[in-house]
């Protein structure tokens, strides 16, 4: 892993950098797997190796490919970095031994999650229990972060102007659209499966690894694939931009609504126990609903991000427009 990162430092070709970053992401994911963190590995694989690579590629396509060999300020940077690193190394000396079962991290709060979560929540995946119930509010925050990013990106990149006239939006994908018929056919077959898989992940999260977030990412990726293969215009016709925004908003609201209903029912915010008469069943319902909210928001924000990036004129098109 360290090697990959060092390579990233030396590379000037940004595309190669991004590819290496993708590899780095996959390595990290497999490392997480080895550390028994299956959920995290799943997420890192889809985010680190998937979405972020994709986004970086799109962004590079819209900007510049080469890094300018500029004068760096390695000395100052090294100094800061060495101080930070040194401090951290210094800090490791009093840490509990790696993997030790009786480290404080494992014996206090986490203990209860492992021992009682099944009785209290009723689902075997402890990570999901903690994520959506014990620390459900963090997850709510996480959804809001995603939503915020989505809004920010629309605010920055949205090309739809107030008058509502839409011209044909130039995309980077026209070439693929025109040339690769094979890809399109394969894609046509693949996409429904991707979407199905996403739904599976969505509703299976309680038992195995997975959940709303991963499902949302996969679902979003499916739609993006569709857009890349069939062109932005068609994709936009299928899924309207403002509709997606509303779905994203709705996801957040759904999550919030669960919380509000739970305190209207006499509990506290996000207290699923009071949703139904049987607390465990209540937890179940609550988790199901909020995961749905997460999935909706994540999927639609990812689509929004992609559409907005792709809808932006690249430098190439700008100069073309000027020439014409």
């Amino acid at each position: 892993m360290v090697g990959v990162v060092v390579a990233i430092i030396w590379m000037k070709d940004l595309i190669a950098v991004v590819m290496l970053l993708g590899i780095y992401g996959l390595l990290t994911a497999s490392f997480f797997m080895a550390m028994d963190a299956v959920d995290v590995a799943f997420t890192e694989a889809s985010v680190g190796a998937g979405i972020s690579t994709l986004l970086l590629l799109v962004a590079i396509a819209k900007t510049k490919r080469k890094e300018h060999p500029s004068r760096h300020k390695p000395l100052l940077a090294l100094l800061v970095v060495v101080i930070t690193g040194g401090l951290l190394i210094y800090g490791t000396y009093d840490m509990p031994i790696f993997g030790m079962a009786d480290a404080p991290a494992h014996t206090h709060v986490a203990q209860r999650y492992i021992e009682d979560s099944y009785d209290e929540i009723g689902i075997p995946n402890i990570v999901t229990s903690v994520l959506s119930s014990y620390r459900g509010f963090d997850t709510f925050g996480e959804v809001v972060v995603i939503f915020t990013a989505g809004l920010g990106i629309i605010g920055l990149l949205s090309t739809v102007n107030g008058t509502g006239t839409r011209k044909k939006l130039p995309t980077i994908n026209d070439s693929i659209e025109d040339q690769h018929i094979v890809l399109r056919i394969v894609g046509k077959i693949l996409i429904p499966f991707i979407l199905l898989f996403a739904l599976y992940v969505q509703f299976h999260g309680e038992y195995g690894p997975g959940g709303g977030f991963q499902a949302g990412v996969i679902f979003g990726a499916g739609i993006i694939l569709y857009a890349m293969l069939f062109g932005m215009d068609i994709a936009r016709r299928v899924i309207s931009q403002s509709l997606i925004q509303l779905i994203a908003a709705f996801g957040v609201l759904l999550y919030g609504a669960v919380g509000v209903v739970s305190f209207l029912n006499g509990g506290t915010f996000l207290d699923y126990n009071v949703l139904l008469e049987n607390p465990v069943a209540g937890q179940h319902l609550g988790i199901l609903l909020i995961e749905l909210g997460v999935g909706m928001t994540v999927a639609s924000v990812i689509i929004i991000i992609f559409f907005n990036f792709a809808g932006r004129k690249g430098p190439q098109q700008i100069s073309d427009d000027l020439g014409a």
Binding site: D39, V47, S52, L55, V130, A149, L157, I305
Partner: peptide
């Protein structure tokens, strides 16, 4: 320990959100 897993799930999401906004 499941707790750090949960935290990192959240943190990954936050990270990608930041990256996306940064790219924009």
């Amino acid at each position: 320990n499941p707790l750090p897993h949960v935290l990192i799930l959240t943190a990954i999401v936050v990270g990608i959100a930041t990256t996306a906004l940064g790219l924009a």
